[in-house]
Design a protein around this nucleic acid. Structure first.
Lengths: 246, 246
DNA sequence: AGCTTATGACAACAGCATTGACGTGTGAAG
DNA sequence: CTTCACACGTCAATGCTGTTGTCATAAGCT
């Protein structure tokens, strides 16, 4: 988990790892699995989805694959390198099959909600990897698409870039936050929610008038993600910045 | 790291841990330190700040304290329980010494920037704990303050609550995202940034016209946090929702 | 002064990521 | 069709990790 970066920078360095494209021999494991980057990433996503982020370890991944854990290091430099591949896979899943409609605001809204929803569908993986810059294929495609939406809408380049940045980081920020809550072990998750019904419910109106006046609203609202509202607020303000056409 | 929640729910259960208020005996460790929840939290923050999030482990914390690692379990049920205390400490640091001015928009802006800045000042700790609901003293104070700002500004209760939710989660989301980037080991952090100058710089205008047209802007913009812009966009949209007074 | 017990220390356990050495079966070369 | 190199799966070992059960000792009450 420590030198992933150097590894990525020097992908061709003398290493255990052979680039996926250059692989010729594929020897099945004792248990018969034929390994590949794709198989490992898929298995990692499945493992984490079924048994939670705490269940993610190289050893367990090896077991799930039907291979010795150390075999994974023939395909990824480190667990962190593997995580980057998982992150990129998530981005790809989020954009799969989607096409822009030409309505920039609706398109951005849809993309934002898709990214958010797909992270929540794999919260454990999202929490581990969403904040990374992967530089891999799916990430590049996503950026090209979103930048295109803003530029085609008529935003000048500097605005398009900074608004894209605000938009995507808002989406990823909420994705991480909401995923993290979902990724907690079940009892912890329940306890975090229960706080709104216990600790906050018992505060005196004298010392905490604003909380006391809104406990019911708070307890209800905190169960939902605030992202849809935050996204709409952002898009509203962005629309106000759109230069008049021509 | 597994049953923290149950522990919190049953704070009084038959446990190793004595509530801080009920402590009578304070026996110094072999190396002379006198332990307390506060000392442990402070040391954890310092440790993580100096040596990075990867340096955080119960054993290292024990060493930094001058105590056996297992002594920590006399003060916290688990590492996760300790993390909640650290999170609350961060919130407290962020609000320390601040007073609302009465201008709701300026106040929210200030609080948002403070939360974000304080997380970045302890990125390693922020990443571990910012998304938790602690239910502890500082968190309660922060919520009361922010709800008050919105309600006093004239937002009806349901709006005040949902707008508070969107505001705080956006602040925390960006805090986690930007902290995570800062918390990466130095070489990894550098590599993630370098991607903008390498991978994205070499894309052809034919296949990726939008990225190609803005690479310089992208590389520059991605070095900064998008939070100030996102915050201003959010506040602009919120202001538009403020009911006319009286 | 004496007693209880809170609390720090110690040792042990199971699980973790990672690495180096090893041998086997694959796929290419002739 | 045989040979051969070496890619890649396996094994074993290292030094981490969080957590717990047991013990002894000193703090503070009576």
């Amino acid at each position: 988990m420590t030198e992933r970066a150097a590894d990525r920078a020097a992908d061709l360095a003398a290493d255990r790892v052979v680039p996926e494209a250059a692989r010729r021999r594929r020897r099945p494991t004792k248990q018969g699995t034929v390994l590949s980057q794709q198989v490992i990433v898929d298995t990692a996503l499945r493992l984490v989805g079924q048994h939670g982020a705490q269940a993610f370890s190289v050893r367990r991944l090896g077991a799930a694959l039907g291979a010795d854990p150390s075999a994974i290091y023939r395909y990824f430099h480190s667990t962190d390198d593997l995580l980057l591949a998982v992150a990129d896979e998530l981005i790809g899943l989020g954009l799969h099959g989607w096409q822009p409609t030409g309505d920039w605001r609706a398109d951005l809204r849809e993309v934002g909600l898709r990214i958010h929803a797909h992270s929540l569908a794999h919260p454990q993986a999202a929490v581990l990897a969403v904040y990374r810059t992967t530089g891999r294929a799916n990430e590049i495609r996503a950026i090209e698409t979103m930048l295109g939406i803003l530029r085609d809408a008529g935003f000048p380049d500097p605005d398009a870039v900074s608004l894209y940045h605000a938009f995507i980081d808002q989406a990823l920020g909420f994705a991480v936050l909401d995923s993290a809550a979902l990724a907690l072990p079940a009892p912890a998750q329940h306890a975090d929610l229960a706080v709104w019904d216990t600790a906050y419910r018992t505060l005196s109106p004298d010392t905490h008038p604003h909380i006391a006046a809104t406990t019911h609203l708070l307890a209800a609202d905190m169960r939902r993600s605030a992202y849809p509202l935050a996204l709409d607020l952002l898009l509203t303000a962005v629309a106000a910045r759109l230069p008049a056409p021509e």
